[in-house]
């Protein structure tokens, strides 16, 4: 790591001011940022520690919605009784994230804002497109972990487990900073990078995620989070799927299906949702929804398997919820 100036911010306003410095970065759990600093991908002059900021802490039941502060650790999310009862897919997603030690340190905000895991981006000897270079090496290289959906000049996938679950739960993220201020659908918080903006979220340099709020699900609502990994645990998703369904009798009322690991942002599979809405789930409908979820996928040389995997995971998730 290059050395830096360390500042601990007492409150949100102070943090935002501190982040306006020439090359400052916000530090919460540090589990992603410090790896990038060790790899010298990021070399901030100043780290602004957010951990004492009161406004970003706590899990609160606000009657019609649940508030989770950005500094809440993944362990807290995983083991929070209220979350486990009412928002099981969020607890499941946290449960399947990283390792115990990382969940004890890593925060909700950090999990949503984490950098991509692309091997080319993380390679110390390469300046890929996302790092300001010319080329997305993955497109012609070893792209087995990369996107099959959403055309973007960088094909790295968004790695968060919490994000698909939260989007399936229709979460809203609260932002505070110079360029953004207020609430935004989490679905819109994530963006595909383009020439004008080589980043994954709408956050500006000195903007912060303060927390998310999740509407209270209907009594008939059920959800599931499935994650496929290269080993049994302690891995990023090859593909994951978060599904939250409201049932109207035996039929599916509203549906939210969000895929992880398939695109540069959590991928809302709206056409798959449309397939099942108002219908009774069965094998063939689940299969059809799976196919719809990956319709239009355009895999690269090494990631064609993700099309099958995503399709099958959507199908499996729907059938599990229909049990």
């Amino acid at each position: 790591m290059k050395n830096f100036e360390y500042v601990s911010a007492p409150n949100l306003a102070s943090a935002i001011t501190q982040l306006q410095g020439s090359n400052s970065k916000a530090l919460a759990g540090g589990t992603d940022l410090l790896t990038e600093m060790k790899e010298r991908i990021k070399t901030p002059d100043r780290l602004v520690n957010l951990k004492s900021i009161h406004e970003m802490q706590g899990v609160r039941d606000d009657k019609d919605k649940l508030w989770i502060g950005a500094l809440t650790t993944l362990s807290e999310i995983e083991s929070h009784r209220f979350i486990a009862e009412r928002y099981p897919i969020l607890a499941q997603a946290a449960y399947l994230t990283a390792s115990h030690q990382l969940r004890n340190a890593g925060t909700l905000g950090g999990n949503l804002c984490q950098s991509v895991r692309c091997w080319y981006y993380r390679h110390p000897d390469l300046t890929c497109w996302l790092k300001g270079g010319e080329t997305c090496y993955a497109q012609e290289g070893i792209n087995r972990h990369h996107a099959i959906l959403g055309n973007a000049p960088c094909i790295a996938v968004q790695p968060s487990d919490l994000a698909p679950a939260l989007i399936a739960l229709d979460a809203v993220v609260r932002l505070k900073g110079d360029e953004v201020d207020g609430d935004l659908s989490l679905d819109e918080f994530f963006v595909l990078p383009d020439e004008g903006l080589r980043q994954r979220t709408v956050l500006g340099k000195s903007d912060l995620v303060v927390g998310v709020s999740i509407p209270k699900p209907a009594a008939s609502s059920r959800g599931i989070y499935l994650k496929s990994m290269e080993r049994e645990d302690w891995s990023f998703a090859l593909v994951s799927v978060a599904v939250q369904l409201n049932f109207a009798g035996s039929k599916v009322g509203t549906a939210r299906i969000v895929l992880g690991g398939v695109a540069g942002k959590p991928w809302r599979a709206k056409s798959a949702e449309a397939v099942i809405q108002g219908k009774v789930l069965n094998d063939s409908l689940a299969e059809e929804a799976g196919a719809a979820a990956v319709a239009g996928a355009s895999p690269f040389e090494h990631n064609g398997y993700k099309v099958v995997l995503a399709k099958n995971l959507v199908k499996r998730a729907l059938l599990e919820l229909n049990k």
Binding site: T31, K38, Q101
Partner: peptide
Amino acid sequence: CDEGTCGACTVLKEGKPVYSCLTLAIE
């Protein structure tokens, strides 16, 4: 590993296991 993966550096911070390689001492 010094990169927050292997767990050989696990210590307890306030009783909870964390990777000390991804924790700044100053924090």
